[in-house]
Simulated assay, not measured.
Amino acid sequence: MTDSLLWLLSIALILVGLAGIVLPALPGTILVLAGIVLGAWIDDFTRVGWFAVAAVTVLAVIAWAMDYVAAMLGAKRAGASRQAIIGAAIGTVAGIFMGIVGVLFMPLVGAAAGEYLARRDQNKAVRVGIATWLGLMAGMLAKFVLAFMMIGIFGVALLV
């Protein structure tokens, strides 16, 4: 495989990874990391060295962990039940099939439905749904920031 095709694959992995930050079916930051490691490997880690790859890997691990922590913190802060957390997960998966609006809002619907089924309290269900959704959105924003930091480290290492 030629270097040009490998570079195209590297760029494609990074771009699909950025889409994966929003689409839960794709492991976003892992794909960004894979594209960056492939880019570093293409020239035997001469321009993008091991230090840059290690820094990018640490950011990817932080982003991966943040995905889970942010949603859980939002849900726990509102006193979510186990059913609300399961509902948010189901809503997230269902949202994949509904386009961007589904991806963004089905976790809220799932968490609220799960909480309502657990406690039969409509007000609490709405609060839990919103808190879980805010946690997911905060996690998504943080993952975008970390992914662009990863790309920035890669770009600087590549060009300097």
Score class of each variant (00 low, 15 high):
105 F>H: 00
22 V>I: 15
80 A>Q: 08
19 A>D: 00
40 A>Y: 08
131 A>E: 07
53 V>S: 14
155 G>N: 03
63 A>R: 04
82 R>D: 13
155 G>W: 12
144 F>A: 09
58 V>W: 10
18 L>C: 13
108 L>D: 04
125 A>D: 11
42 I>G: 12
143 K>P: 08
156 V>S: 02
108 L>N: 01
62 I>V: 14
58 V>Y: 14
74 G>E: 09
153 I>E: 08
148 F>S: 10
113 A>W: 01
58 V>I: 15
101 V>E: 07
146 L>I: 14
13 L>S: 08
40 A>G: 09
137 M>E: 10
88 A>R: 01
58 V>D: 00
22 V>L: 14
41 W>F: 13
71 A>Q: 14
3 D>V: 05
1 M>D: 14
47 R>Y: 06
156 V>R: 09
40 A>I: 10
16 V>D: 04
115 E>W: 04
115 E>I: 00
27 P>H: 05
80 A>I: 14
155 G>Y: 08
108 L>P: 06
48 V>W: 11
35 G>V: 05
87 G>F: 03
56 V>Y: 10
82 R>N: 12
51 F>L: 15
13 L>P: 13
56 V>F: 08
140 M>H: 02
152 G>W: 08
16 V>T: 08
62 I>F: 12
49 G>L: 08
69 V>R: 12
17 G>R: 04
52 A>R: 12
97 F>I: 01
138 A>W: 07
38 L>E: 12
107 P>D: 02
80 A>W: 02
63 A>P: 03
31 L>M: 02
39 G>I: 03
58 V>H: 13
38 L>F: 00
31 L>A: 09
6 L>D: 02
1 M>G: 12
30 I>A: 15
6 L>I: 15
124 K>E: 13
19 A>T: 04
113 A>S: 15
130 I>N: 00
154 F>Q: 07
134 L>C: 04
43 D>C: 09
34 A>Y: 10
37 V>D: 11
130 I>T: 05
57 T>N: 11
128 V>N: 03
5 L>D: 02
127 R>C: 04
38 L>A: 07
104 L>P: 02
133 W>V: 07
17 G>V: 11
70 A>F: 12
28 G>H: 07
115 E>M: 00
70 A>K: 08
149 M>A: 14
124 K>R: 15
136 L>A: 15
116 Y>S: 01
91 G>Q: 06
